[in-house]
Design a protein around this nucleic acid. Structure first.
Length: 537
RNA sequence: GCACCCGUAGCUCAAUUGGAUAGAGCACUUGACUACGAAUCAAGAGGUUUCAGGUUCGAGUCCUGACGGGUGCACCA
């Protein structure tokens, strides 16, 4: 039963009258079995069962491409995500953004967009100088110097030892005892490259492959910021002014000072935003404007950024900047990822970045596997916080959605295998199954499962339009539930089992449904970058 | 003080973008294993969608105002 409400003030008719008119037309269609008008003008259609049987053949025929859509019409979309500072390995904090961005990119590809996965390397700010200094210390250490405690303000992480060693291997004692000005640039680039290799490896282990890594430093060096400044100046959107101090928040070192400002208020922001620091250098925001202009000029009118919750206050100014530099042609959607609370059996795992005591993404992947991490990260809306319990995610029970969905897929595989054992001569090839008369799939549970399968293409489109990949996770859970439910109908009534011992023909028809279900679950999981389980252990 | 996000069953969360009687899981009660994997399934109970107004045929969803929670708030990125 499909429901569709038709609103029409345009027609100048009462909804019920209009519904009557439409109903009369709809009734003439072959696939429509019954039409009812309900309530204030709802039209309820009941489709002929043959329509549903045909859908199973359609799914089998389409295979993994079932649900592909041309909604995006090949339009280019840029999804920028992770973009972690190149100062250390990825942490669990980065995992959520990584999965949301990656799954969203896959989803948009599925519904017909031309998607670019992009990582913005923040390699121009002060923190990479801190990185360089930290790495330099480790370099000295590698050459036998006693460096003592890592000073406050530098990165204490052990992972930098390897960088120091690698630098020593490459350059020998070249930089030892030299002033910072001599080595900063070289050491910095070396350390950034090392860190990016580390991050790339972490992402690869997590199943994320970027199409493009963009360097802030390279962009600035190529004149990107000068370019965006001249664009803004041409539009008269830059001026020198004095900002008021924020109220209610005490800033001890506040001083009134003229600054170079961007008129972001004209584009919906709360205040105008500085684009130069007091020392005359560009702010991060200036670089970011240049970067978004660059993306736009590469053809990405549609930009999606995946950010952590702590950057929420940055959205308005970035959207204002995009509007300004693209003459409102470009659009920017920012997906904010709320915090992930890492737990172990109900207890919060404490982390502190200061002491270098953070949990790396790699260690979590090693402990529970990437598939589990990826799925759980998508079981909440991106803007809701999420508990990730290292113990519970491995439980094999229906409390654990990863298991529940994987189990449904494994169960399909198992049933198919058993069918083959039962009827060695049974032909289960797609070519044969899709040509069968499937009208025996007419029990309530079977029709219910078929309808759930048929919701897949539409679900993809609406999830893609809303930029909400988590909906796929909920759908897969529901679909798994349909399958488990149908399976258990066979417990009560042997005739309803997938495999009917004395009826090879019926079994074969049911295998068509099992295979169709397997296809949809598998393609959903694969969209999440998760390998469908053939069996559970 | 300002901005953004959130507030839905005892708990954790959904809700097809404004549609019909607001849905799942956990926990609770009850039932189903000699047979395709019971790691599951079925049934029951559980609600003034934080509160108060407003918009309209119709609001969990939109607008206003409270209340409660989170995040951020020159010259960091």
């Amino acid at each position: 039963m499909y429901k569709r409400q038709v609103l029409s003030k345009v027609a100048g008719m009462k909804p019920r009258d209009l519904a009557g008119l439409l109903a009369a037309r709809l009734e003439t269609l072959d696939v429509v079995k019954t039409v009812e008008i309900a309530g204030p003008g709802f039209i309820n259609l009941r489709l002929d069962e043959n329509f549903w049987f045909e859908q199973v053949s359609i799914i089998l025929n389409a295979g993994k491409s079932y649900g592909d859509s041309d909604m995006g019409q090949g339009e280019k979309v840029n999804v920028e995500f992770v973009s972690a500072n190149p100062t250390g390995p990825l942490t669990v904090g980065h995992a959520r953004g990584a999965v949301i961005g990656d799954a969203l990119a896959s989803l948009l590809t599925k519904v017909g967009y031309d998607v670019c996965r992009e990582y913005y390397i923040n390699d121009a700010g002060n923190q990479v100088n801190v990185l360089a200094n930290s790495a330099y210390l480790r370099y000295c250490e590698a050459l036998g110097e006693d460096i003592g405690e890592i000073p406050e303000g530098l990165y204490p992480g052990e992972y930098l030892k390897a960088v120091g060693q690698a630098l020593a291997d490459r350059d020998g004692k070249k930089w030892l005892g030299k002033p910072e000005a001599d080595w900063l640039s070289d050491v910095r680039q070396f350390a950034i490259d090392q860190m990016m290799n580390l991050i790339r490896d972490d992402l690869a282990a997590f199943g994320v492959v970027m199409d493009l890594y963009s360097s802030e430093r390279a962009l600035v060096a190529a004149g990107g910021v000068d370019e965006v400044m001249s664009v803004l100046e041409a539009k008269d959107l830059v001026y020198t002014g004095v900002l008021e101090p924020p109220k209610g928040k005490k800033l001890e070192d506040w001083e009134e000072r003229p600054q170079t400002l961007f008129k972001s208020k004209e584009f919906g922001d709360d205040v105008d935003r500085p684009i130069k620091k007091s020392d005359g250098s560009w702010t991060y925001f200036a670089g970011d404007m240049a970067y978004h202009l660059d993306k736009y000029r590469r053809g990405y009118n549609n930009m999606i950024n995946v950010w952590g919750a702590d950057h929420g206050g940055y959205i308005k100014r970035m959207q204002a900047a995009v509007s300004a530099v693209t003459d409102k042609e470009g659009s920017l959607d920012v997906k904010i990822c709320q915090l992930v609370n890492l737990m172990r059996d109900g207890e919060l795992v404490k982390m502190s970045k200061r002491s270098g005591n953070f949990i790396t993404l790699r260690s979590v992947i090693d402990e529970v596997g990437k598939d589990v991490v990826r799925f759980i990260m998508l079981t909440r809306k991106n803007d809701a916080s999420l508990d990730f319990d290292l113990v519970k995610v491995l439980e094999q029970s229906k409390d654990n959605p990863v298991f529940y969905v994987q189990y449904a897929h494994a169960r399909n595989c198992s049933v198919l295998k058993h069918a083959k054992d039962e009827f060695p001569s049974l032909d289960l090839s797609i070519e044969t199954l899709k040509g069968l008369d499937l009208s025996a799939l007419n029990s309530e549970g079977e029709l219910s499962l078929i309808k759930a399968l048929c919701a897949w293409p539409r679900l993809l489109e609406s999830a893609g339009e809303a930029h909400e990949p988590h909906r796929i996770a909920f759908y897969l859970y529901d679909l798994a539930s349909e399958l488990h439910s149908l399976y258990h109908k066979g417990k009560l009534n042997t005739r309803l089992r997938f495999i009917v011992r004395d009826d090879q023909e019926l079994t074969q028809v049911r295998m068509a449904l099992v295979k169709a279900t397997k296809i949809v679950i598998a393609s959903g999981l694969e969209m999440f970058g998760i390998e469908p389980a053939e069996e559970m252990r």
